[in-house]
Nucleic acid binder design. Sequence first.
DNA 1: GGATCCTTTTGGCATGGCGCCAACAAGGTG
DNA 2: CACCTTGTTGGCGCCATGCCAAAAGGATCC
Lengths: 210, 210
Amino acid sequence: MDGATNSRPRTRASYQRLSRDERRDQILAVARRLFTELPYAEVSTTAIAREAGVQRGLIHYYFGTKRELFLKVVQGLTEFAAVQAPPPDESMTLPQTVELCVDLFLDTAEANATTWFAALDAEGFGQDPELLRIVNRFRDATVEYMLTLLRVREPTETLRAVLRIYSGLVEAATRQWLQEKTLDRAQTRTLLARSLLVLMTDIAPSLEHG
Amino acid sequence: MDGATNSRPRTRASYQRLSRDERRDQILAVARRLFTELPYAEVSTTAIAREAGVQRGLIHYYFGTKRELFLKVVQGLTEFAAVQAPPPDESMTLPQTVELCVDLFLDTAEANATTWFAALDAEGFGQDPELLRIVNRFRDATVEYMLTLLRVREPTETLRAVLRIYSGLVEAATRQWLQEKTLDRAQTRTLLARSLLVLMTDIAPSLEHG
DNA sequence: GGATCCTTTTGGCATGGCGCCAACAAGGTG
DNA sequence: CACCTTGTTGGCGCCATGCCAAAAGGATCC
């Protein structure tokens, strides 16, 4: 391989050494920004390294491969975008709880619009099983959270399925509101609240049979 | 490499010459199969060429770039998966029409499950504007088709938005039915039919104001 | 204050994919 | 049978990624 391996000076490298966590977080932050701005393929590890003021090999040292780094980013996004849990209130009526629930969705979506859609968009990224697992875990967590908030005693698998479907409705509605701007927040709120109410009180029970 | 570059006969290339359309369609067929089986990044032009029994450069000759080939594939998928239009029937009641509409969705989805999800999954592929345009055109066509089938005289923009959202519900429901298998066809049908009915007769009108 | 050691960080090699293009050959046309 | 069109090949150059051995921070110990 390279003839004069031993004679090469290999000097002049002035850099600052950081703790494992610091460097990790720093790279992760840069990667998060780039991955939410551009499609996966257009974000090169070279670009991430450059913006982090670091050599490309370091990314491999911390995250292994580019895909693994991407997965870490997506995981972070889903955790970040997860709805913050307020205490369940026993005195509220179902319609009230539903509206509260919807408001939480809308608040979260509005506050983290970019992040929110970046995480959702990541899903279609192919038939990547690992990525699918992450996004599904996020969906399931949301469903479980809805179940506690709505104080459902013993949720059936059917009800869970209905709520997962509903989360697809939430996603689509949020898109129309924040991205296409064909609905305003009040309209989106009404649509989502009434839909959820109908789904839970009316449609879901009618699906329960044999 | 063979040392005598210039003396190289450059012969022995026995191939069959096809017409433009034939070759195009052949490559497209292979690409469609591979792109629906694997994520974009894992399908190399080399693989496509190999399976098509053709040299890699030919792909560029016909389609320009890999991305353009992919877009052609997705476009083909959306056209193929488009719901076939039956004649609108003036004598049907709204609930009947709604059920017919839902059945059409389910038939299409069931018949082309792989294709269907491959097309939908392609969406998230990043913030690719071109790809977004193709998928949106598909969605809009579906919405327009629903409008004629449901015999809506003068659709408002709000109603269109609601139907676009509904198509998100269809997508999510189809996933639960065909991929996760947490619902059967009858349940999915009921859910989608009743949801569409409520959305159109009840919820959408209530969103129309100032 | 200097030697030692552990871990971070670098820099470069190798591989493979993609875009491109000039040369080549199939197969029809005069 | 030469000729011409154009489908087709084969290879060059570039860039991105994975990987790894060597080098440099910087804490610790004497």
